[in-house]
Design a protein around this nucleic acid. Structure first.
Lengths: 232, 232
DNA sequence: AAGATTCATTGATCGGGATCAAAGCGCGCA
DNA sequence: TGCGCGCTTTGATCCCGATCAATGAATCTT
């Protein structure tokens, strides 16, 4: 069973087992717990980078540009660690997609503490490379010109991360709204909706209600995403 | 003056000064030097991730998808360290944009060695976060719907990385071909070319020859890229 | 220096996705 | 349980960027 205290989950998921006790209490003292409420809880990095740990629930990292435009950079799920960057060309905000628990640190003291424990730095480095790999795959998906490829790529990515295998296919519970998907893919909600309809009519997936999706044919979906075949 | 031996440059740029001597010889023994030749030298990760250090020159990291489609994920310049991922949904290749020197490691032994020196892991972590930040900004640029915003965003990013300040503006020497820019932005070479022409006619930049560009008005360019104004 | 080859620009047309507009559902609420 | 709001789907039109095609400029070769 999962640990219920957010900080305990943090220790369990992120910290190496040989971590120094004093270090742990250092992290505890700089951590801030947030009872996230869907769509209304946000973390913004004012001035300096922030680190957030998603103990439970899920979040989106949004970049704000001119003219009120918003771009979803990435989604996070339980156990994910995310760096919310300070303002550059864009301003970033982390927003809860559903109720859950977040842990939140200023990046500077966080890294200062982390630097004292080699094993922890290694973990953080690995997670950073993992986020980089994800971001790259997302860039590739975004770079495609057709809406079909973008959405198919997105769905496969979600299946990898939060899909539940079933006899009829892979079940997804998409907590993000169509708007979030559109903002993540550089499309409009209408186009996203239309592509869902097309894929459903083609028998690639089933839609139930607002957030329920079952991917019936991952191979065909992968094909539409333009992914290379597994054998190659 | 810059060091001429690629490995020495690697030590100088990446390694912390307190690094263990034995460790350095360990890195030397697993390193492979490559005299990169423009457009023909490539590094592909067959099976396991690769690490490349760009001692001099510049490179592009390309993701290969179906139907021979290529997507440029990122560009590297002298001093950059890049992880070339093993095949996932896409196959990645690092290609030289101009003649230069590369250093090349298998990622597994590289990280195994790096793990022994805390200071080095910290450097690698910081570089990973830096790459992540870059990739995110690129995603945001890619997520925009208009070609104008994409190209303006790309140019500003290049100005930050390899621009030389001049009285007339910021000079860029774009080593990548129009095709590379197009592949990086999810556009066609014709559209890239047309947007260049429009921006030139609007007085935002000057074009000389195939690769010479002077950005005359960074603020206006930033505006077109949809970036938030600096004060905000 | 002249040709050859590759790369970049410009033009014309077509199509897919944005935009504008309206109807249909699902979900939370009383 | 039924009401009402917000999200989603569907429809019609327009426009930007892809595509097809040809010209023009740069760099490389001999």
């Amino acid at each position: 069973m999962a640990l219920h205290d957010p900080f305990d989950r943090f220790l369990d998921v992120v910290m190496p087992s040989d971590a120094d006790k004093e270090l742990l209490s250092g992290f505890r003292s700089i951590s801030r717990r947030i009872n996230a409420v869907r769509a209304s809880s946000t973390i913004t990095a004012n001035g300096s980078d922030q680190i957030a740990f998603v103990a439970s629930g899920s979040t989106k990292l949004v970049a704000h540009a001119m003219h009120g435009r918003e771009q979803v950079v990435s989604f996070q799920f339980a156990g994910d660690l995310v760096l919310v960057p300070a303002r550059t060309a864009h301003a970033y905000t982390l927003t809860a997609l559903e109720d859950g628990d977040l842990l939140h640190f200023n990046a500077d003291p966080f890294f200062a503490l982390a630097g004292q424990q080699n094993g922890l730095v290694i973990v953080l480095m690995q997670r950073a490379y993992q986020s980089l790999a994800q971001c790259r795959e997302k860039s590739v998906t975004l770079g495609r010109t057709s809406a079909q490829e973008k959405l198919a790529g997105f769905l496969i990515n979600m299946a990898d991360r939060i899909g539940e295998a079933q006899e009829s296919g892979v079940r997804l519970h998409l907590l993000m709204a169509r708007r979030d998907i559109a903002d993540a893919l550089g499309l409009t909600i209408e186009t996203v909706s239309r592509q869902f309809t097309i894929m459903r009519d083609d028998g690639l997936l089933e839609i139930s209600g607002r957030s329920g999706i079952v991917l019936c044919d991952l191979n065909a979906l992968s094909e539409r995403a333009g992914h290379l075949p597994v054998n190659a």
